[in-house]
Structures are given as C-alpha cells and as structure tokens.
Design a protein around this nucleic acid. Sequence first.
DNA 1: TGCTAATCAACAAGTCGTGCTAATTAGCAA
DNA 2: TTGCTAATTAGCACGACTTGTTGATTAGCA
Lengths: 140, 140
Amino acid sequence: MKTPEELVARFREQGYKVTPQRQLIFRLLNGNTAHPTAETLYEVAAEQMPGISLRTVYQTLSELSAMGEVQHIDLGSGAVRFDPNVDDHHHVVCSTCGVVHDVYVNQTPLQFEGDVEGFAVHSTRIVFSGECAQCAHLSA
Amino acid sequence: MKTPEELVARFREQGYKVTPQRQLIFRLLNGNTAHPTAETLYEVAAEQMPGISLRTVYQTLSELSAMGEVQHIDLGSGAVRFDPNVDDHHHVVCSTCGVVHDVYVNQTPLQFEGDVEGFAVHSTRIVFSGECAQCAHLSA
DNA sequence: TGCTAATCAACAAGTCGTGCTAATTAGCAA
DNA sequence: TTGCTAATTAGCACGACTTGTTGATTAGCA
C-alpha cells in the first residue's frame, strides 16, 4: 500500500475528497500486518474518531480495494480481511487462534495438471493452514 | 468420496440411518465434478424427490464433510461448494463464469519465507484464478 | 463562496447457513 | 412385528456479514 500521504494525493487525483475519516483509515492500514476485518478496523478507528460509521469504513476499504491499494482476503472464516501488503505474497493461517501472516513462495508460477485446457491463470492464491508456534506451546 | 454403497455402509456403522434422502445425495455427489453448492444440489435433488428439504441437504452435506467424504471449498464467491474429490488437489476458477475445476500440483509441499517461525502446516490450499477457454473464446 | 461529494443515522434487505419447534415418518435393532 | 429413536419436514427466526437507501448535515476543494 502507498503511504497515507501518497494515498491522499491519489484520492485527490481521482476526484475523491480527502476527508479526516479516510485519512484515519489510511493511517490505520499503513504498515498494518494484522489483516484486520472491516469491523476490527472500525473499532480501532472509533477510538480515535468517535462517530465514524462502520459504513464509511466499508466504503473506504472498497475504494482502496478497487484502487488496488489493499488486498481483499477471504479465508472463509466469516468476515473478509484486508491486507495493505499488495506484493505477490500468500498467507499462513493458524486454525486455532486465527492469526494470519504474510509469506512469500518463490516456486511460483506453479504448474498444474488437470482437465483445464486453455485456462489462462491471472492470479494464484495459496493458503497454508496449521498451528502457529504460540498455539503449539499452549496446547503442549 | 466413497461410492454410494460404501457410504451406506459407513452411515450404518456410525449409527446414522440410511434414508432415501441421504442415498439420493450420495448418488448426486458420486463422480460429480461440478463443485455444487448446497443450493444447486438441492435443486437437482428436488427434481428427483419433490419434498426433500434444503435443510436436509445442508444436514447431509455437513455429515459427509465431517466424515471427510466431501471437501468443503470456500472460494469467497458466496456459497460454499462441495467437492466429492478428496484427493490432495487444488482448484482453478474462472473469474468470468465461475466454473471450478480440480487440478493437481506436484511441487507440493511448497516452501515459504516469512515471519512464521515454528508454524506447523497441516494443509495447503491453492486457487488459480483466471479465464477459462470457453470464456476466452466468447470474449474474443 | 458554492457546488457537490462525503458522512451520518437509521433502517432495510439480501445471502448463506443454522437453530428451534412440533408433528410426522420411517430406519433398524431386538 | 414391534417399538425406540432418529430423520425429515414446514415454518419461522436469527445471526453474521455486507450493501442499499434515504434524507439531512457537513465539509472538501476548485
């Protein structure tokens, strides 16, 4: 994701207004590795700006997603999560605590076999599920 | 997935009753490569057995999933899909028409890098998105 | 300054899936 | 064959997540 300052410029270029709400969300996402949902981001935002609406958070996240500034990750665990890391990366997910981390896989592009003649791959998503070190210690 | 006959035996072993509804669902899933949702499976089932309820379809699919006889695949595209193929395989999804096909990736297990010391991977899911040959022809 | 987008509250709706209840049906073990 | 009990059904509701709408207010920015 671009820096909050760069996003301000991009929003202006696109004719979007740079509101305090949007700027707050830019800052909360910047360098955020927690893979927050719209809801959790809203909670943090509301602490700093009481009165901000969940609707606005959803709205701004959609805009950022459409602009390619955040990744939209759906792990099938309820809510969609947002990732300001838009590098070509993948995810590991702890089945126990739900924590998500970014990982890099360098064997890509992957080869596959199957009844899919002529399929043009545009993107590949890889999710590793298992147990994180923390949870392994707790259960031991 | 096991054959309908084997599933009948497994259900009996587990103390589950073998009802016509369940048997119908077994047959509809057997060899099914369409990755149906509960809803689409229900529609087909209802043609052959008017009166079957969507509730029962959900119920039976949950049982099969819990028994490991079908895979539960969530592509983030709305409803969960079910796959009677429980081999170690992955999926390609056409972004245009939504069709899903099974594919096999032989480079697994994949290596990755990231801040995930001590993470124990239990499973890996790979989804290739893009455009299928059909859709490519239509848009050309 | 003024146009217009953005925000907000409040409410609704849509999708997917599950929970509940009460009545009926029917599998299957003894 | 009987009888216990699970399964099914209809019908309704709810919960989570997300988006739509409306109408009033605020405020960005040319």
